[in-house]
Nucleic acid binder design. Structure first.
Length: 339
DNA sequence: TAGGCCATCTGGTCCT
DNA sequence: AGGACCAGATGGCCTA
């Protein structure tokens, strides 16, 4: 293709300001190369350029000082060639930028459907992926076993391999002290919690970051200890409390109810003091695909009794929604602090 | 100031 | 040939 055609094709494209910036940068690059800097005598560029420009054919001959080089013959960087190079580079940069933006958009979508979504405190890319992996694993495990896990196990599974800040974030979402569910802390965890945390098998693919700092080892804040009350009527949700029912008949569960718990809107427990419901927490899973899916969705696994969703269904975020989710979070925070 | 995270540029490789 | 994908390099920003 003649250079002029290639150039006109390019100029037909819409240049963003970033592209213009690229062009400027490439012009600087041009200056640099014109001065003979870098690029190892332009070998690199010549390799990139290919050999379709007869007019530029030129070889370095008679250079006795340097040993003969292998590979394609060297060609001079003509203006036209440089121009085409710049254009290709600029286009490639734009494509790469867009590609990365698409990737980041996908990651953002993932952040929204993973527990502990926060607009203000965004999970890093790597932590998002780890948390998503744990989340998928935990849900799969739930489906595989056909038994709902207790929350402590679930949170433990979620936090496997996460960095301390992310673990703290999850703990924050849960209103929990991370020490209460980190597996390494089992010696410090009350017996009922140790029992609860055994519902999940060891995560087969858990990421063990060698460089991760240890979780905080502070004093146990009893106000953060997680108390789960089994609800009084039989339902598909009951298995979530099975371990606490069978193993945790300790006096600690006769104490005051702990605040309702929310895992970033994926689980929530609501305290309704005025009803018979009052000593129980309704479990809801308003992961959008679950709670909105109705009979087809995951929610149907847990919803064969009267609806427990304390948040109006239309307040639950849509798959890509933000504001709904924020309202849900806000509602849950209200519930958390309603004591 | 060091370290973490991120966006961007870049060149290589593979695929269509 | 051109685009997609990838990984390395680099520099900016932020935080402890």
């Amino acid at each position: 293709m003649p250079e002029s055609q290639s150039t006109s094709n390019w100029t037909d494209e819409c240049l963003s300001s970033q592209d213009e910036h690229d062009m400027e940068k490439n012009n600087r690059e041009h200056d640099r190369m014109s001065k003979g800097e870098d690029y190892e005598d332009d070998d690199e560029l010549n390799r990139l350029e290919g050999d379709d420009d007869e007019e530029d054919e030129e070889e370095e001959e008679g250079d006795d000082q340097k040993p003969k080089r292998r590979g394609p013959k060297k060609k001079k960087m003509t203006k036209a060639r440089l121009q085409r190079f710049k254009m290709r580079r600029t286009k490639a940069n734009t494509r790469e930028r867009n590609r990365m933006h698409g990737l980041n958009d996908a990651l953002d979508s993932l952040r929204k459907v993973v527990p502990c979504y926060s607009k203000t405190q965004k999970l890093s890319k790597i932590e998002t992926l780890r948390l998503a992996k744990n989340y998928i694993w935990a849900l799969s495990e739930t489906l595989r076993s056909g038994k709902s896990p207790d929350l402590m196990s679930f949170v433990q599974a979620l936090c496997k391999g996460l960095s301390q800040p992310t673990t703290n974030l999850v703990a924050g979402c849960l209103q929990l002290n991370p020490r209460t569910f980190l597996p390494e802390q089992s010696q410090e965890i009350p017996s009922h919690m140790q029992t609860a945390s055994s519902s999940f098998p060891v995560h087969p693919y858990s990421y063990h970051s060698p460089g991760l700092p240890s979780p905080p080892y502070g004093t146990m804040d009893s106000s953060h200890i997680f108390h789960v009350k089994p609800h009084s009527y039989g339902s598909a949700l009951e298995p979530f409390f099975e371990s606490t029912l069978t193993d945790c008949a300790s006096p600690s569960f006769d104490g005051p109810l702990s605040p309702p718990l929310s895992v970033n809107g994926n689980f929530s427990f609501k305290h309704e003091p005025s009803s018979e419901f009052e000593k129980n927490y309704a479990f809801t899973m308003h992961y959008p695909a679950a709670s909105l899916a109705g009979p087809q969705g995951h929610a149907s696994l847990y919803s064969n009794t009267a609806p427990r969703c304390e948040i109006p269904i239309d307040n639950i975020m849509s798959y890509d929604g933000h504001s709904h989710h924020e309202r849900v979070m806000s509602a849950q925070l209200n519930a958390i602090f309603h004591d």
